[in-house]
Amino acid sequence: MKVLVSIKRAIDYNVHIRIADDGSGVVTDGVKHSINPFDEIALEQAIRWKEDGTADEVVAVTIGGDAAVEQLRTALAFGCDRVLHVRTDQPVSSLTAARTLAAIAAQESPDVLLLGKQAIDDDNGQTGAMTAGLLGWPQATFASAITLGDHSARVTREIDAGLETLEIDLPGLITTDLRLNEPRYLKLPNIMKAKKKPIEDTTLEALGVTPAAGHRVVDTTPPAPRPAGERVDSVDALVARLNDKGLV
């Protein structure tokens, strides 16, 4: 079985972001970046399948500029067999990313295409379902458990009402939720070895992808701050405040 994992370079989840004074966006220069946490879970899942013999080959792909090489090296250190870098210096919308992943899936013919459920920078959560739609593949989003069969997968999904189980035929697309697994810590020898492995380069043009250019971000601003709160020193004072506000 062949598994293709899509990863995205994003500002590290622990960073308190800063918005550019001119409203043009979020400051990214000199800020720590990592693999989007949900994509790391997807990588971990694919490598576990490789380790238990379910998957023969794991390929990771990312779309982005030179800096994204760092995340591809991390994917290699996880144990991916091959990594693909779709090089572009332009910002990539979810639809463009979906078109790119669909083109790569057509070339690579994976049995399973794994993505994180959303990227923590744009919080869109669109790319997985868009890619599945473009490919005409089944989709199972927000996966917290996956059982792979030869031609189908059983996926437990985290939905608002609880846990739902779907069965999808393969090839299929799955997006990962937080509780699917706990990604491993990478060992130094693996990180060192990953530095020497090849990265396959391609471009949107080579893949025949037309970037979508529909939506335009006009500005980016900080949310309205909440008014400063107060500390109370006793339960009685807390109840009195709640009474004042008419909340109890």
Binding site: I120, R216, V217, T220, T221, P222, P223
Partner: peptide, 17 residues
């Protein structure tokens, strides 16, 4: 909202789609 609600973006979408 983006970045876990730490920023708000204004998005303009094409009227013809």
């Amino acid at each position: 909202p983006i970045y876990a609600g730490n920023a708000l973006t204004t998005v303009e979408t094409p009227p013809d789609e």
